[in-house]
Design a binder for these strands. Structure first.
Lengths: 335, 335
DNA sequence: TTGTACGCGTTATCAT
DNA sequence: ATGATAACGCGTACAA
């Protein structure tokens, strides 16, 4: 278990017959170095299999070479797990070829102070914050002193002060509803997400807008928490209202698939009696019965884009304050 | 965007009226410090809101205060996403109160060398390796010079040289099959995972063992890749064989739910004609139609346990070479 | 029990 | 374009 003692900058310098300073310059791509020397040094680096020591680099340069990926514990635990995994993957892949390391932080609600200190303590150069939905303003404050990119539109109050990348929930929802309309649905209901979450608000708005554009009356609305259970219950409430509907837009696949149950129990067939469109394109949606028509979000790509924006921010290069990513309608058999 | 200049050890020392060495001792919990002094110093630390600089600490102590979580890109991309997310969550939560930071590494196949150098370059104190299944022996070598804990039983060759934590796949599979037997199934088939993967091998073995114990002939076997698509196809092949069966154990929920389709298409009802038991207890399994009976794995807890073992290893404390975690049968309506 | 002083591997400043 | 040399913030003999 004894770690190899890694070669140091100094050893490379000796091997190449130059000073440490020069090796450092080569390592950091400083342009003012004689090409021939660069060549020599790089050969030495390869020969010794030299890898810069991050701690030393960090100490001397006052940069951390690290980026935090912060996920609220509640998010990680209850829903969005696959979503979260995909974002991590996208970000990690994007960061792999850079000097930055991705530090995972699950933010337990009772330790936000600790998280804040960690972030502000110079341990990271920036932070990626996923699915943040609490009301407190700590994040707004943090973003004042540390580059931060949010995944998903942040709360309204923070919106114009923050950088974020989000999927076009409004357009996605509109596309879903339009599909329903084109299938000749005339009474279209919706099961939305938690009213406090920006993404849920946007999907609901898309539903409203497209209905208005089609000259249709809005159908009944119920809210769920994005989970299967809540979707099942929401559909039960929807049916209990007694208002007939022939189409329904459900704000998450997890809820949509779970909603099949009550629908079937009520003797309603999908899509013949009620057409259903979900949102997310979760892995299991294709194998639901019937296979779910849904709106696909580019989640992995979203993680990558968040990382790209953050790196630009960190390096003081121009970056888009808001990036909206396109969704795609995946037509299967539920609508 | 200007980071606060963090207070240093020196400032705390000044504030407390002691030397830097003493503050350092307090920070690191060295026992040989006067309790009264400890008190004073801690007050100063709190007053100044001091956080030790990791880079400096790392440089001086030759420890990284970081742990790598390595996931093969193929794993992250194709399946096990929810699995992977849960492991990350468990590990991150477990590590939160410690000095260690969790570094995500997606290992692209064409850059293993880079990953290795990173790991051996002193950038981390140990590594958590999830779902590793390639044939090369690099990992065995790495584990010689760096503490490593595998998630899931590693390949046979590496087995006795490595530390790992796994779920009891054999017992889980046996429990699933026993349930089928108790439901009076007499001809029990299985759809297994990739024959090269240890976990799949174990689940297949559990199926065989329990069948033998019940005095039943093994039914037909097909293999999938754990994905929905592959599950659907495997079931089609199973049905095409023309050998009747009244129960089937499917090695992943993703495949199991997808297998409903071909079953239904063949006019077979679940569970009346064919009882189905899956493995994983994925989030969507409860809302499948019918709700899937399955074997639950303690995935989050597994991530936490991996972290615990690794930390012990790093700190040279005694650690279990292998930890096997129990599974639990979740009876719903598919069997 | 506490303090002094040196070293950890790099970067950055200032000469040259 | 390159080389000395002083930080960077902390741990840890060693001394007291």
């Amino acid at each position: 278990m004894s770690r190899q003692k890694a070669p140091t900058l100094e050893m490379v310098a000796a091997h190449a017959g130059v000073s440490r300073a020069t090796v450092s310059r080569v390592v950091n791509g400083t342009p003012t170095v004689d090409p021939a020397v660069v060549e020599t040094v790089q050969r030495s680096i390869a020969a010794l299999n030299y890898v810069p020591n991050r701690a030393a680099r960090s100490l001397a340069s006052r940069r951390a070479f690290a980026i935090a990926l912060v996920v609220p514990e509640s998010t990680a635990r209850f829903f969005a797990d696959p979503f979260f995994g995909a974002v991590v993957q996208g970000a990690a892949l994007e960061l792999a070829p850079t000097d930055y390391t991705l530090n995972m932080i699950i933010e337990s609600e009772d330790q936000v102070a600790k998280t804040m200190r960690y972030l502000l303590g110079g341990n990271v150069d920036g932070a990626l914050v996923v699915s943040h939905q609490t009301g407190d303003h700590s994040w707004a404050d943090i973003a004042e002193s540390l580059p931060v990119v949010f995944g998903g539109r942040p709360l309204d109050e923070l919106q114009d002060r923050s950088y974020f990348v989000d999927v076009d929930n409004v357009a996605g929802a509109r596309r879903a509803v339009r599909h329903l309309v084109e299938r000749d649905c005339r009474r279209i209901a919706t099961i939305s997400g938690p009213p406090t979450m920006p993404g849920a608000q946007d999907r609901l708005r898309g539903w409203e807008e497209e209905l208005a554009a089609a000259g249709l009356e809005p159908g009944p609305i119920e809210h769920g928490r994005y989970s299967a259970d809540s979707g099942r219950e929401a559909m039960q409430r929807l049916l209990a209202r007694g208002e007939a509907f022939d189409g329904v837009f459900i704000a998450s696949d997890e809820m949509a698939v779970a909603a099949y149950g009550p629908l079937r129990a009520a003797g309603l067939r999908v899509p013949d009696d009620v057409a259903v469109v979900g949102f997310d394109d979760a892995s299991f949606s294709a194998s639901a019965e019937p296979p779910l028509t849904t709106v696909r979000q580019p989640v992995v790509e979203m993680g990558a884009e968040m990382a790209r924006v953050l790196v630009r921010l960190i390096e003081n290069r121009p970056a888009e304050k808001v990036t909206i990513m396109d969704t795609q309608l995946v037509v299967r058999q539920s609508a």
